[in-house]
């Protein structure tokens, strides 16, 4: 092989290696960001939205429609918590602010920090289901045996597609495997799903 040829080969190899590196960056940085973006826009992963109280109160209820909302609660894996919806089912008008409560109790004798993750079905509803207050906005710290009633305040957007009459909202509590919550609650505010 002559010098020229070798130079050419090395240059091509260099370019190809760069594209490989670019693909690693794409996989680690772009793919997760893209996924989150798409999920946030479309609600494909069943995530619900979050709006300010003022905005919710300013919405005019649509008294002509009644939507049935069902509430479900689960714990993930072997998280030793009791977790349930105190209200199993309510009926609301779109545009009306409603409040329900969930109940959770730490059955173990150690402090556990949990994070609730919502899922709403049918999936296309996600865009129209907004919360002003939720225990899922931040991590929840429960001491040994501690129990709490936790409010959930939400509003269904009046633009909800006409064919939807029933919405099911499900929460799953995950163990965050952390012992304290204070130190990074600020970070959690941003990172946690709504």
């Amino acid at each position: 092989m002559n010098e020229d040829q070798q130079q050419k080969n090395k240059r091509l190899a260099g370019k190809l290696s760069l594209s490989a590196v670019a693909m690693v960056v794409f996989a680690i940085v772009a793919l997760p960001a893209l996924y989150n973006l798409i999920c946030n826009i479309t609600g494909l992963d069943g995530r619900t939205g979050r709006i300010e109280k003022e905005q919710a109160l300013a919405t005019r209820p649509d008294k002509t429609r009644v939507i049935k909302i069902e509430f479900d609660a689960n714990v993930n894996g072997d998280l030793p918590w009791e977790f349930k919806a105190l209200t199993r089912r309510i009926e609301v008008h779109p545009g009306e602010v409603a409040t329900v409560s969930y109940y959770a109790k730490n059955l173990s004798n150690r402090t556990i920090v949990g994070q609730a993750v919502p899922y709403v079905t049918p999936i296309k509803v996600a865009k129209y289901f907004n919360k002003t207050e939720c225990f899922c906005f931040s991590q929840q710290k429960f001491g040994p045996g501690e129990d709490k009633e936790m409010p959930l305040r939400f509003i269904v957007d009046p633009d909800l597609p006409k064919d939807v009459n029933t919405i099911t909202l499900s929460y799953t509590f995950f163990d965050t495997k952390q012992s304290g919550v204070e130190e990074d609650s600020a970070k959690a505010e941003n990172a946690t799903p709504q």
């Binding site: 490989a20 590196v21 670019a22 693909m23 690693v24 794409f26 996989a27 680690i28 793919l31 997760p32 993930n76 949990g114 994070q115 993750v117 799953t172 995950f174 163990d175 965050t176 495997k177 990172a191 946690t192 799903p193």
Partner: peptide, 25 residues
């Protein structure tokens, strides 16, 4: 490289406290 990225994210989820694939985080 995408496979390498996937296992790298697994590695950091397992050992360095990220939560690419962890709903709790």
């Amino acid at each position: 490289p995408v496979l390498a990225g996937a296992v790298t994210m697994m590695l950091t989820d397992r050992n360095f406290g990220t939560s690419f694939f962890d709903a709790a985080g």
